[in-house]
Amino acid sequence: MNKTLRTMLIGFFFFVGIQLSLSTDSHAFTDRELAKGTKGDDVIELQARLQYIGFFKGKIDGNFGYQTYWALREFQEKYGMPIDGIAGSKTKKKLTSVSSYDKKFVMDNINSGKEFTHYGGKPLSSQVKGGTGGTTVKKTNTQVPPKYSEDDVKLIANAVYGESRGEPYEGQVAVAAVILNRIENPDFPNTVGGVIFQPGAFTAVSDGQIWLTPNDRAKEAVIDAMNGWDPSENAIYYFNPVTATSKWIWSRPQIKKIGMHIFCN
């Protein structure tokens, strides 16, 4: 009798525990709708929950891309919901009720740059794959057009900061645009690194200022340029008329002046 009662009590507390943990989860998401193109901690939670129940097999990074989109659609289809690939309140509620999310585990691993997964039914400690913790650079979850990478953003931001940190924002976007214009131009190397480290191409490379840590402003300037803004109006060169030593650069057709720089073709 005692044994039966004990088993029932354990079962009861286990059930209550599960329910409590799930009901806490239901308030975890923010209120906003999550669609392709969004990013943030709520997207991290969405990916982690979809992975917990086996729909999402990609990397949990907080960027709502195609991997997340297809996984969400599959989830919606399986649970008989309207299939639109958007995580609205109903989808999030359903997802919360059928999955679990260990926020601390996920965020700790993301912040320490470790590779990990978040599948249910498998000890989470065995799902951490690599990284040294603390020494790995944290990814910043930048969303740029598919032809560019986050490393491209970092490198161009270094160049923009080293070359033009004292310039107006427009001038910083223009410097980033010149780098991107060169990649598309057959007269220059066709990679970000190739263009930036072409000998003699940028003063910041020659004097080492490219290795200064860029600020958020320089990074945003690069993101704007990658998204299409080009205040230089298609320039492939620029120079500071006060410090320029090359006579040849003065022979280039000039387009406009922004801050201390003249932009030209």
């Binding site: 000039q254 387009i255 406009k256 002046k257 003249i262 073709n265």
Partner: peptide, 9 residues
Amino acid sequence: TDSKPGAAY
């Protein structure tokens, strides 16, 4: 300001 003479447009 006007664009400089070397501007394509």
